[in-house]
Design a protein around this nucleic acid. Structure first.
Lengths: 225, 225
DNA sequence: GATTATAATTAGACCGGTCTAAAAATCATC
DNA sequence: GATGATTTTTAGACCGGTCTAATTATAATC
């Protein structure tokens, strides 16, 4: 079952998984945009993945792709690899958190179960990667988080930063500079309804800062009251 | 120049490099056997590599392949990756020396210059991998070794083990058990001319052992007099 | 140097994954 | 529910890398 799963297929399954997690579903176009590939290629691939034995996705015409249990397993395996690698590069080799993503994207497809295991134990079996994303367990369960995007926190509320979307290194560097990293505490001071800006005081910082929705929608927090 | 170099091409160049180093030249059949591929595939590939701009190999019909300076650079880059990774897996993640080869063979194609550098410095810029093979330097010079195969050492001579061919994990485990690892000292006690067996006393061991040429040709030493 | 074994090359097919261009289905808006 | 915009699918081509089968060149032996 694992042997016919190429690196490319792994990438498709991972993409479909994260898309359904964040957007609710994975359409042909979304997958295509996310992978930098034409929609025609996506159709071709998801049709193929629906015909493998066992099938890795469910496919009905014009309805996008949904992962089967088997497909989800593969996706979670790769996501586990990815997040363990991010943590390892960060902790053991001194990568900053905005540098790890790209490297992990290549390594995730080639590490053995053996190496995965050694990395995990050498890190003390961490539950989150450097961006606060949960790491699937050995048996591929992913602890579901009830985090709120920072954009939905309102004035007066205190919050603990839990995770940050790791897509854009620029954003990550910017957030670092502002002190907004997992485990940071902050208070929302003000909200501007028209542009959806938030004025925020990060604990331990002098100045309050103002962040737009482009930023606050990428940061996830737990509200502390 | 680097962008058209696929993982497969890297493997061909690496194979041609090691074959010319160990056998003096790289014929179509040798490359094919070494890579588990048909001779037809090899001809096809080396013809292609001779036509790239710049060419990576020199090719004349029925004469096998010879690396150009450019091809050698790529090969040495990959060999540097491979040997640094072996050392890293061994030192940092506790792999035994017979386990590292396979894992390194996959990782060597996907690590960035950045990661290569971080691994190297985290290991203190080692000059040899766990099997005693020299690691090409950052500027891709490979210190040439004047080692002798153990098979050519004669009775009465003391020798310091320098390196062991890393192709076969079985052999590596066996050698480990006998105490024959890089930096081990030994004395050759006797030589049987017909079967080319050597009787050997490893320093720190009780019993002398007898090794055939299948083993002694894979172990390289410096004779100490 | 003729014969035979071995190695190397060619020609053509195939597979995985991508693309473009054209056709069909769905969605959004009136 | 008709119209136009968008999305999706199909059909066919292409590229990288492999293979098999047939052919040709080299090496080895007499």
């Amino acid at each position: 079952m694992r042997d016919n799963v190429t690196h490319v297929i792994e990438d498709y399954l991972k993409t479909i998984y994260t898309l359904t997690a964040s957007e609710g579903r994975a359409t042909t176009k979304q997958i295509a945009d996310h992978m930098g590939v034409t929609p025609a290629s996506v159709t071709n691939m998801i049709q193929k993945l629906a015909l493998t034995q066992p099938p890795l996705v469910e496919y009905r015409k014009h309805r996008g792709a949904v992962l089967t249990a088997d497909g989800e397993k593969v996706a979670l395996e790769i996501i586990r690899h990815h997040r363990l690698l991010e943590m390892f590069l960060h902790q053991t080799l001194g990568y900053s958190w905005d540098q790890v993503h790209e490297e992990a994207d290549r390594l995730e497809h080639v590490i053995s179960e053996e190496l995965e295991e050694r990395i995990s134990t050498s890190l003390g079996n961490p539950e989150h990667d450097p961006h606060g994303d949960p790491i699937p367990t050995r048996d591929l369960r992913l602890p579901e988080a009830d985090f709120l995007p920072l954009s939905q926190v309102r004035p007066g509320q205190r919050a603990l930063v839990q995770r940050v979307r790791d897509a854009d290194p620029e954003l990550l560097r910017y957030l670092s500079e502002q002190g907004i990293t997992p485990d940071a505490r902050l208070v929302v001071l003000a909200y501007s309804p028209f542009d959806n800006n938030l004025q925020i005081q990060v604990e331990g910082r002098e100045e309050a800062i103002v962040l737009g929705p482009g930023v606050t929608s990428q940061v996830f927090v737990k509200v502390e009251g």
